[in-house]
Write a protein that binds this DNA or RNA. Structure first.
Length: 427
RNA sequence: GCGGAAUUGGUGAAGGGGUUAACACGGUGGAUUGUGGUUCCAUUAUGCAUCGGUUCGAAUCCGAUAUUCCGCCCCA
């Protein structure tokens, strides 16, 4: 049997409801921040990700889906959302409008990785980017959006971990200090750390294998290499977080896997049993040089991305995934040719007036139709027979109370509006 | 990319070489051709991820492949 590709999944049923739910909750929240919606292509010229995300990141060096199109162009399925938004920002010259510009998106990303629970090769992210302000208010606002969103969904025990990588100068100085420090110990470091030494020496600090080795304690600390401006920026971010009562913790080991970050970086974790290394629900940070690196003007940015699959797992685990489809207002059935014609026109009329209507297509038995009406949880059932067609008086039954009514066809809209209104109030 | 475990119907699963693949839920039809949700009856895998091998005989043993899950790496 044909199977879906490794690391992908189909969206239907409950998962589809949940995805729509997340989209609608997020979109109504983000609107409060005056943010515009973006949708950019799922594939871009490969060069965008090489220049944007960075050659040395694992994401670009070994996880992208690359292909040549029929015109022999090098293309890549987007492994993350920021690069595409930045490209769009530059290409459409949006920097010429008044800034800052705030953008959000939700869509699939692609990474060639070994799948696990909460990790897929095609996965969804909800993301946000803001261009055009260096002010640390924005760093804090970005964090607050994620924080508020997760709280709005009802998650408990959500924790924000923050760190700063400093500006370009601080970062380069620290990078140099780390490589100088670890160079004599290369033989003592694990294989992974030897690779990290080349690519991203910050990660050595986060190594579980080498954590207990003596020389680790005296390794240079980021805070000692921050210049005054970087320190001040980070301090202010914390002040704003305090003002908004956001619970956070400074974690100097957060480094992030994308090369473009400067200053603030953060992760939002859920403390959920059995989540293991998949407990990071969202991550993000500031990227002051990315727009310029991709070929735009020198415009700073801040953003985050939320992993939809992990968020869904967290919601499920916490029992916060009780979404239901809108109930069907009316189920209509009738058997003969005449009845079906009448039924069809009635259904069309009700749907045009805003009612959710399902009907019997198969001329099934009464019993079957009532079963079906229960199955789809219809509030009312309308039975079409000879009598109804002749007299234009409808037989309608409340499917919960079993009360039956005779209602003139002309008055059915009014009748249903009133009755369904009552049902809503009962809740 | 490395290491480990698993895979039986629509779903949860039992069976660990002997011929009809248990049980439960769900689905469909009927008892009940103008009034259902209970109950009862019938039916629902010529097939046990796929391909190949061993055997008189394979869901069961062996191999490869695929997928899922777990750990590492990395990340959302």
């Amino acid at each position: 049997m044909l199977q879906k590709p490794k690391g992908t999944y189909d969206i239907y049923g409950k998962r589809a409801l949940m995805m729509n739910y997340l989209r609608s909750v997020f979109s109504s929240l983000i609107d409060k921040y005056n943010v515009s919606y973006f949708e950019t292509p799922m594939f871009e010229a490969s060069e965008l990700f090489h220049r944007g995300v960075g050659e040395t990141t694992d994401i670009v060096s070994k996880e992208t889906y690359d292909f040549k199109d029929r015109g022999d162009r090098d293309m890549t399925l987007r492994p993350e959302g920021t690069a595409g938004i930045v490209r769009s920002f530059i290409e459409n010259k949006l920097y010429a409008d008044s800034l800052p510009l705030k953008a959000w998106y939700m869509g699939p990303m692609f990474r060639y990785e070994r799948p696990q629970a909460g990790r897929y090769r095609e996965f969804y992210q909800i993301g946000f980017e803001c261009f055009g302000t260096y002010d640390s208010m924005m760093d804090a606002e970005v964090i607050s959006i994620v924080y508020n969103f997760l709280n709005l969904l009802g998650l408990k025990g959500v924790k924000v971990n923050i760190n700063t990588l400093g500006d370009k100068e601080s970062r380069e100085n620290y990078h140099k200090a780390l490589t100088d420090y670890f160079k004599p110990y290369l033989n003592d470091l694990c294989d992974d750390c030897n690779r990290r030494f080349e690519k991203n020496p910050l990660r050595i600090l986060d190594c579980k294998v080498d954590a207990d080795k003596g020389f680790m304690k005296n390794a240079p600390k980021m805070t000692d290499y921050l210049n005054a401006e970087s320190k001040e920026h980070f301090m202010k971010v914390q002040e704003y977080l305090n003002i908004m009562n956001i619970e956070y913790e400074i974690n100097p080991n957060i480094v992030r896997g994308l090369d473009y970050y400067t200053h603030t970086v953060f992760e939002v974790v859920a403390d959920i049993k059995d989540f293991g290394s998949q407990n990071v629900l969202a991550g993000g940070g500031r990227y002051n040089n990315l727009v310029e690196n991709i070929g735009g003007p020198s415009v700073p940015g801040v953003g985050f991305a939320i992993g939809v699959e992990r968020l869904l797992l967290a919601l499920e685990y916490e029992g916060l995934d009780k979404v239901q489809a809108n109930p069907v207002s009316v189920y209509i059935f009738g058997a003969s040719t005449q009845e079906k014609k009448y039924l069809m026109s009635l259904a069309n009329e009700l749907r045009s007036n805003g009612f959710k209507v399902d009907i019997d297509y198969e001329s099934k038995s009464f019993k079957n139709n009532f079963k079906r009406a229960d199955k789809i949880n219809a509030s009312f059932v309308i039975i079409i027979g000879d009598e109804e067609v002749k007299t234009n008086v409808l037989t309608i039954k409340n499917n919960k109370t079993k009360e039956e009514y005779k209602v003139k066809h002309d008055e059915i809209i009014e009748f249903l509006s009133e009755k369904l209104g009552d049902l809503d109030e009962d809740k």
